[in-house]
Design a protein around this nucleic acid. Structure first.
Length: 574
RNA sequence: UGGGGCGUCGACAAACGGCAAGUCAGGAGACUUUGGAUCUCCCAUCUGGAGGUUCGAAUCCUCCCGCCCCAGCCA
């Protein structure tokens, strides 16, 4: 058993072409070789519970948990909950659900920065004792003024040289709640002339008389990110503290705090955050979409949130594959939404049962088909998976086909049904269109009259004649009615963050990002489709039963369309 | 004009001085009872630019150009 495992491990390390190398994996591999951190690997995923997780977080989750697993290490889940004014339990619960759903497990290593408040307070006291921190009475306005600008150095606070005793006493009184919000801060004493503004005596603690979702009213002072994060990493004995590029400037501060108290020192490594075309991935913007009602909620299937993607029909597997494919690097980039769509198609193609559903029904009467006859046609559930078996689909004289599958004046290369033309009905018969019934007033095509060839049952013609097209269909009297929500990109612009003068990102919201179709007809086998279950509606795309769906009212979300060669041709013709 | 990063195919992204991987997109064809899937082939004589070092440079050096981040008591 052990021998076998060793062999497998050897194999995977040798063929590391299967695991794309990225610079973070490379650093960790080298550290292990150099016996740094006793060759341990312990990463962490540290979300702030102030919003839902999105696909950009998935990149970080896959990286942190993935790399830990790969090197036989651990990854902690830690809530970075140091700002009670923005954080909520709703988010901490949703975040855990999403990480778990993505397929990752933190075992018993669920931590909160707020669990460290007492220890963090002690660290701050130590810093004061060492003369490396001081209580500052500058108002926010004044502090900004003293900070200087990008080009000019800052000036030292007049409170910078208080004695340790005075600082200790003041800091204690801050903790006790003696002072109002904003009246004082605890600051690190570093260098007001530093070119790196983060080093110009950054605030470590601020006064906040706010209720914290975990510590209640116990604290009136809360640590800032830079202070809390490095020490949290240190206390958890994190080896590699992976974060996004905007924290690169904070690394000197991260290092400064840990060195100042000479404690265990993880290393911070930064990578570029994900940008995805046709959507936004900033929490601020996502919150705005939710709160202003541009979408139905965090789990609106158009949202790039994990919960939105889940409701849309994306699988954890497809998202993990996506994160693997996009790679990890330090340069800013914008990943094509098409790649995410490719990943879900790739997954669903292998697993989704095929089914026939008519989204925009057009009535077809097979005039030479017996009035009362109903035949059960055998259909393949998944051509990619023979084990998925077959099913029976009822066929009768009156059917529905897709409106788009008929053209009175078929353009070049349109192979589907047209007057006088013969096509195949999938798993059924060849039919030929003999007549078109139109509305007298509008001229709209209301119904097609067709003739079938009984010799083609099952879809093959004994005389070997070919038809260019195969259409999906449902039997009118057997089909179930369903609502189908056709989702598309939330934004019309590849980069909605690139705003023109006088507009903002919301100006580019796609008005057709949701088109609801109500009188769709689906094959009877879909009765009672489990919410969340995904199907391929043949020739259309992948659809999943929405959580709003029930036995009595079927609702499907379009996850993604199938690749559509005809749509491409048609677009070129226009 | 300060500090920190980054520039390789339309989009991602490898290559760590030895002669530009792979993936998506795109194109051509084969096959096809999904215009799906699958399969085959094509798609950077070139790595932001200019010099230099070297037998040899995307990789090293110099200068230039461009893009991103930082002036919250947010993370």
């Amino acid at each position: 058993m052990k021998g076998k495992r060793d062999k497998e491990e050897t194999k995977t390390t040798e063929s590391d072409s299967s695991q794309p190398v990225n610079f973070i994996r490379a650093i960790i591999a080298e550290d292990i070789k150099a016996k740094k951190y006793e060759s341990r690997v312990n990463t962490r995923f540290p979300p702030e519970p102030n919003g839902y997780l999105h696909i950009g977080h998935a990149k970080s989750i896959c990286l942190n948990f993935g790399v830990a697993a790969e090197f036989g290490g651990l990854c902690n889940l830690r809530f970075d909950d140091t700002n009670p004014t923005k954080e909520e339990v709703e988010y901490v619960e949703a975040i855990q659900e999403d990480v778990r759903w993505l397929g990752f497990d933190w075992d018993n290593r669920l931590y909160y920065a707020s669990d460290y408040f007492e220890q963090l307070y002690q660290f701050a006291v130590q810093l004061i004792r060492k003369g490396k921190a001081y209580v500052c009475d500058l108002s926010p306005r004044e502090m900004k003024d003293y900070r200087g600008t990008l080009n000019e150095p800052g000036r030292e606070s007049p409170y910078r040289n208080r004695t340790a005793e005075e600082n200790l006493s003041l800091f204690k009184r801050m903790k006790e709640g003696e002072f109002p919000d904003g009246s004082r801060t605890l600051r690190a004493k570093i260098d007001m002339t530093s070119g790196n503004i983060n080093m110009r005596d950054p605030v470590i603690y601020r006064i906040l008389h706010a209720f914290h979702h975990r510590t209640g009213n116990k604290w009136r002072i809360y640590p800032m990110y830079d202070f809390a994060h490095c020490f949290s990493d240190s206390m958890e004995r994190i080896t590699h503290s992976v974060c996004t590029l905007e924290f690169e400037d904070h690394r000197p501060l991260y290092d400064w705090f840990l060195d100042a108290l000479d404690v265990y020192h993880p290393q911070q490594i930064e990578f570029a955050r994900l940008n995805l075309s046709y959507t936004v991935l900033s929490k601020r913007k996502l919150i705005e979409l939710v709160e202003r009602g541009y979408v139905s909620g965090w789990d609106d299937p158009r949202m790039p949130t994990i919960s939105g993607l889940r409701r849309r029909g994306y699988t954890p597997e497809s998202i993990r594959n996506f994160c693997e494919r996009i790679g990890v690097a330090k340069r800013d980039s914008m990943v094509d939404m098409g790649l995410l769509e490719y990943c879900i198609r790739e997954d669903l193609n292998k697993t989704a049962p095929r089914v026939m559903a008519v989204l925009r029904p057009l009535k077809v009467v097979i005039e030479n088909y017996p009035e009362d006859l109903v035949e059960e046609m055998e259909a393949i559930n998944n051509p990619e998976d023979p084990g998925a078996g077959t099913r029976k689909v009822p066929f009768s004289r009156v059917l529905y086909i897709e409106k788009d599958d008929f053209r009175e004046d078929p353009p070049k290369q349109f192979f589907r049904l047209a007057p006088g033309r013969e096509v195949r009905l999938r798993y059924a018969y060849y039919i030929k269109c003999t007549d078109v019934v139109k509305d007298d007033q509008t001229g709209e095509v209301m119904e097609l009259r067709c003739a079938y060839d009984p010799a083609t049952r099952g879809g093959d013609s004994p005389d070997g004649r070919k038809v260019r097209s195969t259409l999906h269909w449902v039997s009118a009297s057997h089909a179930l009615e369903a609502e189908v929500r056709m989702y598309d990109h939330l934004f019309t612009k590849p980069d909605p963050n690139d705003v023109e003068e006088g507009l903002d990102f919301k100006s580019y919201i796609n008005p057709d990002s949701l088109v609801t179709l109500t009188s769709c007809r689906v094959e009877p086998g879909l009765a009672g489709a489990e919410p969340g279950s995904v199907y391929q509606f043949e020739r259309q795309g992948y659809f999943c039963a929405d959580i709003d769906s029930s036995e009595g009212s079927l609702i499907f979300n379009r996850t993604v369309t199938l690749r559509d060669t005809w749509a491409k041709i048609e677009k070129l013709q226009k």
